[in-house]
Each structure stands twice: as structure tokens, then as C-alpha cells.
């Protein structure tokens, strides 16, 4: 089992995930946009449009305009997810020593890393649970939900839940995980840490990434394409006087 999930699957996942994602984005860029679809008021310059896009991607401005409750759940979930992904790179990559560059001791850095990870994890789980409850409890949202919408939530809750379990009850040293991942990346795979929570967590991530390019999760890339259609600066060829 651990040979399949720990050694073979990661490479397949990486190829499917990256290849699929790039393929889908290229497919979008290859289709023409015959008409200008700007929704006004819109920025006049490319810089303005990029700033607009950034505000949207970071602050979820459109959701803020509507129901604030949905904005809060969605924003909490996405922002904590972003924190956690970055945290994984730094935490595992630098073994929790990333904050020593701000002049604190190695021990304090590890502690801070763990603390931030815990907070972000709690926020992530909270966000996910709120979004799930909304999807199940509201008749209108249930009406528009497919199995895929629930599946994405289930996978993410599984990942976040197992991550929090490791964080709170069964901590695995960063170094063990780092060793395993470095092995994978340098094409000298070693056995994954033999730890049920870790294996579950890692497998769920693999499943999610496998599913990613075929799913609605592609909105993470698509949002930039679709928003660009309506925010890109509109140069009017004819100016008054």
C-alpha cells in the first residue's frame, strides 16, 4: 500500500495536476473574445485593472457587496488555506526555523510556526464547516448543489481534519516529512513516515490534486481569466472632442 500511495502515486498526481491545470488554462487562452464585455465602472488603465483583480482575489470584493455572511465564510476559508499552503512550504522546508530571520531564537521560531499553523488550521476547519452547513441547510443552495460540490468539501474537511489531528494529538517532526518529500523530489523516494494520520492526510491531498483539473476547483485559475473579461480596461477608440 505505502509503495503505491507513497512512491508511485505522488508522481502521477504531480503530472496530472500540473499538466491538467496548464492544459485547461491554455484551452481558455486559445478561444477568441469577439466583443468587449467590460462591466462598468471599470478601471481605465491596465495597472488599474490588475489592481482591481488583486483586490478581488485577496479581498473577495464582489462577495462583500452581497451577503456579508457568505463573504465571511468564504474569505476565512480561502485566506487560511492560502496561509496554510505557504506555511507548509516554509515550515517543512525550513523545519520551522523560518522566523529566525526576524532575529528570534530557533526555539521561539518553531513555537511561533506551530502557533500560527494551529490558528490557521482552526480558521480553515471553521470556514469549511460553515460553508458545508450553508450548503446543506439552505434549500436554495441545496437546489444548485451537485455531488461534486459536496465532494470538494468532504475532501477538504478530510485534509484539514487530519492535519489538525496531527497538529494537536499526534505531532510528527517536520524533519521526517521533509526527508520523505526531498526523497520524492530528488527521485530517490524513501518510505513515507509510517503514521496513519500522515498517510491519510497525504493520500487525501493526492486525491484532491488528481481531481483538481477536472473539477470546479479550477476556479482558482479561472477567476483571473473570467474576471479579466469584465474588468479589463476599455480603451474607447473615439474620444469626445
Amino acid at each position: 500500500m505505502s509503495v503505491l500511495f507513497g512512491w508511485v502515486l505522488p508522481y502521477i498526481v504531480l503530472i496530472v495536476f500540473l499538466g491538467g491545470m496548464i492544459h485547461r488554462m491554455l484551452a481558455w487562452t486559445h478561444i477568441p473574445v469577439p466583443f468587449k464585455l467590460t462591466v462598468f465602472p471599470s478601471p481605465d488603465t491596465t495597472c488599474g485593472a490588475v489592481a482591481d483583480l488583486a483586490k478581488e482575489a485577496i479581498g473577495f470584493r464582489s462577495l462583500w457587496r452581497g451577503k456579508k455572511g457568505l463573504w465571511f465564510m468564504s474569505w476565512l476559508f480561502h485566506i487560511s488555506l492560502a496561509f496554510i499552503i505557504v506555511g507548509h512550504f516554509f515550515g517543512i522546508g525550513l523545519l520551522g526555523q523560518q522566523f529566525t530571520m526576524f532575529g528570534i531564537s530557533a526555539e521561539e521560531s518553531e513555537h511561533l510556526s506551530a502557533l500560527m499553523g494551529t490558528y490557521a488550521g482552526v480558521a480553515l476547519v471553521l470556514g469549511l464547516l460553515m460553508l458545508s452547513i450553508r450548503r446543506i441547510s439552505s434549500p436554495t443552495v441545496r437546489f444548485i448543489s451537485n455531488f461534486a460540490d459536496y465532494l470538494a468539501l468532504i475532501l477538504l474537511i478530510g485534509i484539514a481534519g487530519s492535519g489538525m489531528y496531527m497538529r494537536l494529538f499526534a505531532e510528527i517532526p517536520y524533519s521526517v516529512v521533509q526527508e520523505y518529500l526531498v526523497g520524492l523530489l530528488t527521485l530517490h523516494p524513501i518510505a513515507p513516515p509510517n503514521h496513519p494520520a500522515f498517510l491519510f492526510h497525504f493520500t487525501m491531498v493526492e486525491l484532491l490534486l488528481l481531481y483538481f483539473p477536472s473539477s470546479k476547483l479550477m476556479h482558482s485559475c479561472g477567476i483571473f481569466f473570467s474576471r479579466w473579461l469584465i474588468t479589463r480596461p476599455h480603451e474607447r477608440q473615439v474620444i469626445l472632442k
Partner: peptide
């Protein structure tokens, strides 16, 4: 779908969040 990027994108990127309904 071959000449309207908007159409393909809109069919692809919706997450069924329901923000539009109300």
C-alpha cells in the same frame, strides 16, 4: 464554444456558491 471564450469560461469556473441568487 470555439469562438466565445466567455461562454466556455463561465461554464467552467462556476462553483455553485449561490452569491448571484439573491
Amino acid at each position: 464554444l470555439k469562438y466565445k471564450r466567455s461562454l466556455k469560461l463561465y461554464l467552467d469556473v462556476c462553483t455553485h456558491c449561490g452569491a448571484c441568487a439573491e
